[in-house]
Write a protein that binds this DNA or RNA. Structure first.
Lengths: 254, 254
DNA sequence: CCATCTTTGTGCACGCGTTCACAAAGACAT
DNA sequence: ATGTCTTTGTGAACGCGTGCACAAAGATGG
């Protein structure tokens, strides 16, 4: 995952563990695909493979929702799609605003995965007057002056922030003041919000940095392995060998 | 953080827990900001607040890296920036390719956070011949025919997939075959890769769905609360009350 | 109606991550 | 040099998440 997680404490919402909630969308996607292929039932084993998880975990996850399977047969695809959708609250329509229509905001506006899953882009908002009126993904961009009115007129409770980090907190404050209680933050900033407001953050560069860490480790291990293989028969010559994770006694600055 | 995580099993890489690795970029960002303001030292309490985490957690995280603090004073900002950067492997340059230059791919190419942190966009690749040659973020888009050559010529080990889901697995296979060992996947698909290849996925719609779940729960709780408050003095009249999480005995289809 | 076979649902154990709380370590003043 | 004060580093307890392994449940065939 990417997707970092600033989140409510370990509040088990309605008995469903947070980790399970995070996987429900995965199951839903796999089930939707099966549904489109008119597959009537699916076993935990098959579905788990399609969703990329352990089958025991999947069964336990589903057990939190109720006993929706049939032993010896599996799960009814359509029924499960409905149950998970209901559980996630996707049977209702969620109007969403996107604030900050740069490259990323536009990408999100164009992203098809929203509309199909109960989310509707109610408005695109940008602070640049030059953007106002422009069409993005078939929707006219509105100036941020009208943010509060847009929120309340459309009954928006979910906001997406794709602004530069410098204004993210300020935008967040206005969204919250206007009634938004869930925020998806793409700006690389720690947002502070009052209790009762959920924030999830998606941080593109953090994901890359985590990959780099593992990549470095892989390279280091490989090097160490080669070196060991090389050193075993010959006996190494060089004296200063600072291993894969060179713990250089770098002088502490100042 | 959103960011789903398809990831290596619980392999404690070099003794540093995965959860800690995921937070190091957060600390690094907060520290970089302090560094730019020429703040010389910072206490675990202050830094934790800036990064949005618990101070005890931060201290424990740092303890995995070594004893870099000074009791009674705090941490030297510059030194810590260096240590974390080194640990994450950001002191070297990571060439990255982005495959699939749609809205999202373009957004990533333009994202400034990469260059500043040791990542360099080595190439933009797209399957559409009409895209080839176009400049995006100052880089010419190349056709996917040359993918393998681009990877090996540039020594790329990290690939970013921003293609439609239908071709993601195929692109992934080619990247891996060409030598890529870390993949950041934005396509809503479960990628299967051989051992030794890391995949992290960022799924935009999953994050929204998780927010919707909590949003629904909040609405339900509030409704239940109001209802309870209303019902207490009056005694409720309606008979069919199906609570916040209406467990309708929906007929099992088929 | 009974036997067999498949697949679910879950009790249990284990390990990781988080948090508390405090001792050790150093800075700083006297 | 000694004492006080601040802040780190970490031992220990706890809780959550995961995965194993199996009993219970139902389908299916004879």
């Amino acid at each position: 995952m990417a997707t970092g997680r600033t989140h409510r404490p370990a509040t088990r919402s309605r008995g469903i563990p947070e980790a399970t909630v995070a996987r429900l969308p995965l199951y839903l996607r796999a089930l939707t695909a099966l549904s489109e292929r008119s597959v009537p039932t699916v076993s935990s084993e098959e579905l788990a493979a399609a969703a990329g998880v352990n089958s025991a975990k999947l069964r336990k996850d589903f057990s939190y929702l109720g006993s929706y399977g049939t032993r010896g047969v599996g799960y009814d695809v359509e029924y499960l799609v409905y149950q998970i959708s209901r559980e996630l609250g996707l049977t209702q329509d969620w109007p969403v605003v996107i604030v900050g229509i740069g490259n990323l905001g536009a990408a999100l506006a164009n992203y098809g995965g929203f509309a199909s899953r109960g989310f509707r882009v109610a408005a695109l908002i940008d602070a640049d007057p030059a953007m106002a009126g422009k069409q993005v993904a078939g929707i006219a961009v509105q100036h941020s002056d009208g943010l509060e009115k847009i929120i309340s007129d459309n009954g928006v409770s979910i906001g997406v922030i794709t602004t530069p980090p410098s204004v993210a907190q300020q935008v967040c404050d206005r969204l919250v003041a206007a009634g938004v209680t869930s925020i998806l933050n793409f700006a690389p900033t720690v947002l502070s919000v009052p209790d009762g407001v959920d924030v999830r953050k998606v941080d593109l560069s953090i994901e890359l940095q985590i990959l780099a860490f593992h990549e470095q480790r892989k390279a280091g291990e490989e090097a160490a392995l080669n070196e060991a293989a090389l050193a075993a028969p010959a006996g190494r010559g060089d004296s200063t060998d600072q291993g894969p994770d060179g713990d250089v006694p770098a002088v502490m600055p100042a």
